[in-house]
Nucleic acid binder design. Structure first.
Lengths: 194, 194
DNA sequence: TTTTTAATTCTACGATGTAGAATAGTTTTG
DNA sequence: CAAAACTATTCTACATCGTAGAATTAAAAA
């Protein structure tokens, strides 16, 4: 009875607002501001709505987080089609890391999602970029696995090392090593050097 | 007033038990059994002690987790000194992953610890194993960074993919790629192949 | 013997996720 | 047009969590 005293029941048709999109957007904004996953109550407060209202739109919190995660896909770097695959991969990696960094706490959600996750999009774009290398299937898989798990690990390290500032460029030497490995492997096979 | 009704105050000298070590050991065992970080209350119940008793030994839960993490160091593979650095690194990596897998939820703790963490021990043993390669400082760092972050990422993937069984061997192709990169890089420099 | 210190339990608070019911509009149906 | 069904919301309540602070009791020191 302080100031607010919301009326129960379905709201009148005029100014209802509240929708999946609104909830997701507000939650995303809170993640950006507070650098952590907000509580259901915090989101609902920001929306000026009862906490349980969110459960009309999402079965539970983890579904909400999954949908937030899915909605991040559009932020992932879109390869230009240039044949400078190394630069393209670096660009892709950095944009992926930036997302994981900005929306801290979503990595676990992302990894436990079966599909529609930014990881899948990452994989698709990786394949596209790396296609001109015409690597063997198994080689490409090893390359990809090493890369994505590396990025996930790096992103966790970023998130935990609160002392350090974001040092995205730190991925370059390891990536360079990785790329050289792939390149040299191909060249070696090609001209018989050993 | 069910059955138990513990006496308050300092216990008599005879059968006190309770110590840092006991708490840590019980907590570790619970992590192994339940595959997750136990709550303070759960640990104290297992110890048949009030929850707040644990706070006499640890400032807060995260300190307890840090000490658990530190205590895992002894489980990390000790290199034999063999000059087969690739096998040694694989062995080291697998033992590290096994720990991270068995004690799920400790990765975050580990990453935010400033020292005495298994990661530091890992780094030390890595350096030892890789020493005969006499890599340049920056090369060795890139190698290490790529490896540890890869392992951390892989371990997260393991922990999240609850459907799959532990597939430690899946790290071998990526590691092979990584190793080949390092090796070929050296050979190339050595005999001028390009 | 008194005082201090050590080791414990009790009570309680503020988060958190969320189940279940009450409520009040809106839409559909007879 | 009234009744029934559905939709979208608030309210109340619970279990769990970490942990602050005080009370309590035994042991150790003075």
């Amino acid at each position: 009875m302080t100031v607010e005293d919301k009326k129960r029941g379905r709201p009148q048709k005029d100014k209802q607002a509240l929708s999946k999109e609104l909830i997701i957007n507000v939650a995303k904004q809170m993640m950006l501001n507070n650098k952590k996953v907000p509580s259901i109550r915090a989101i609902s407060t920001a929306l000026n709505v009862d906490a349980m209202a969110l459960y009309y739109y999402f079965k539970n919190k983890s579904v909400l987080l999954e949908e937030i995660t899915t909605s991040l896909i559009s932020d992932i770097y879109e390869p230009t089609g240039s044949d400078d695959w190394e630069s393209e991969l670096i660009e892709l990696s950095k944009s992926y890391l930036t997302i994981l960094y900005k929306y801290d706490g979503l990595l676990k959600t992302l990894l436990s999602m079966s599909s529609d996750s930014p990881a899948d999009v990452f994989i698709g774009r990786f394949s596209f970029i790396v296609n001109p290398l015409s690597l063997e299937k198994s080689q490409e898989k090893a390359f990809l696995d090493l890369l994505v798990d590396y990025l996930h690990g790096f992103s966790m390290a970023l998130a935990c090392n609160s002392t350090q500032a974001l040092a995205l460029d730190d991925i370059e030497p390891p990536l360079a090593l990785l790329f050289q490995g792939v390149v040299l492997q191909k060249k070696t096979v090609a001209n018989g050097c050993r």
